[in-house]
Simulated scan of single mutants.
Amino acid sequence: MYTEDGLNEDLGSSVFYHYTDSAGLIGILASESIRMTHIRYLNDEKEFTYFMEIFNREFQKSYRQLDKERVDKCTEILDVLKNVKNSTQLYIASFCEDGDQLSQWRGYANGSGYSLGFAVKDLIELMGISYDEVMKAKASTDVVAPNDNGIMLRKVIYDPEVVKEKISKLVNLLMELVCNSESSQDEETNFIFEMLSASSICKHPSFKEEKEWRLIAIEDVHEPYRVKLRSGPRGVVPYIEVPLLSMRDQFLLNKIVIGPSQHQQEQKNGIELYMRTNRKQMVNIDVSASPFRG
């Protein structure tokens, strides 16, 4: 699991929220799992392009000092990255620090929006590592090795300067790789993995209001999960389901916020009826305070 600046002791008692529509709510409550969408089917198709545009600008500043052999080596590695990006099965579930955010509700203007709250500690321990272990590792490094199911929790970066700094480090890593005649295939593979994971959390600053965190799962290490399909605006959308159960098989859902609509009380009653008659663990159900009505 990877951590970014911001995952600290203060977040230990925090709740992250996953926004969804009525179909998503029904699916999550029934399966007690989170749906992680294939990265190529996310709403913002330009994320990877945005990241690579900045990377290429920074790379141009460095590659001029290389001879042709090393330039060719850089090109080879970046070509591999492009092919891997197109073929790797990277799945993402998005969370927000705010459970009643106006900009998020605007995406559910038909009155069928919900935010589902999960304790940060539960999301971390879901990945097979205790929150205390993460904090201990954080004291010495920003990286905690992924566990067996390969799921990472990452904070999305919106600050252009921070994105540029992260990319500069990756450019330097690439330079070291191609200038070191003894660099191994494993080191090249690690670079490609770092590029992929970084590109999945760097977004344009216009999205900063989202305050997004992401659960990320990668193909090679999530073999237990079967790919499923759901309906989306552009047709079918591939996703995987990751169980949201504690070590005692308790559903980790902490809270439900019902988005702005004319029928909030009816929706609350319906959810409570479902939870009670299906012997689901009861959770706090609130209604949005936002005046937005679509």
Rank of each mutant, 00 (worst) to 15 (best):
R57S: 15
R279A: 12
Y225R: 02
I167R: 03
E176I: 01
E266W: 05
V80W: 00
G107T: 07
E4S: 14
L11C: 07
E53Q: 10
K136P: 00
E97R: 11
L25S: 06
M247V: 14
F51S: 04
K82E: 14
K280T: 01
E219V: 01
C179R: 06
L273Q: 07
L196V: 14
N149M: 15
V71D: 01
I258Y: 03
Q250V: 11
D100H: 04
N86I: 09
P233V: 08
I192Y: 00
I240D: 02
A30M: 11
A289T: 15
T88F: 01
L245M: 12
G128I: 12
G232E: 04
P243K: 09
A119Q: 09
D79Y: 04
S33Y: 02
E187I: 07
D132P: 05
Y158F: 09
I218G: 00
R70G: 02
M127C: 14
Q250M: 09
A93H: 03
G270V: 04
M175N: 01
S140Y: 06
G294A: 11
T75E: 10
L170W: 02
F193L: 12
G27D: 05
K228G: 00
E125A: 09
N172W: 00
K164N: 12
S31T: 15
V15R: 14
V237Y: 03
V84S: 07
S199Y: 10
F251K: 03
S168Q: 09
D67L: 02
E165V: 15
I271L: 03
L196H: 11
Q250I: 06
F251T: 03
A93V: 02
A145N: 10
K85E: 15
C96I: 13
C74T: 09
H222N: 10
S130Y: 06
S62R: 08
F251H: 08
K61Y: 02
S22V: 10
L25Q: 03
V171R: 01
R106Y: 06
I216C: 01
K268T: 13
S183K: 05
D10W: 00
E133I: 15
S197A: 14
A139S: 04
Q101R: 09
A289W: 00
M152A: 12
D98V: 15
Y19N: 05
L196T: 13
Q262T: 15
L66D: 08
S200F: 10
I54P: 00
D10R: 12
S246V: 10
L126Q: 06
V163C: 08
P238N: 03
I216E: 08
I258K: 07
I167H: 06
T49D: 13
N284L: 11
R279G: 09
R154N: 14
D142C: 06
M282W: 01
R64K: 15
L245A: 07
G111W: 09
S200N: 14
Y2N: 13
D100Q: 04
V242N: 00
L253H: 07
S200I: 15
E58P: 00
H38A: 11
Y114N: 10
L153F: 12
G232L: 03
G99S: 11
D21S: 05
K138R: 12
E69H: 12
R64W: 12
Q185M: 04
D132K: 09
I34K: 00
K155V: 13
R214H: 05
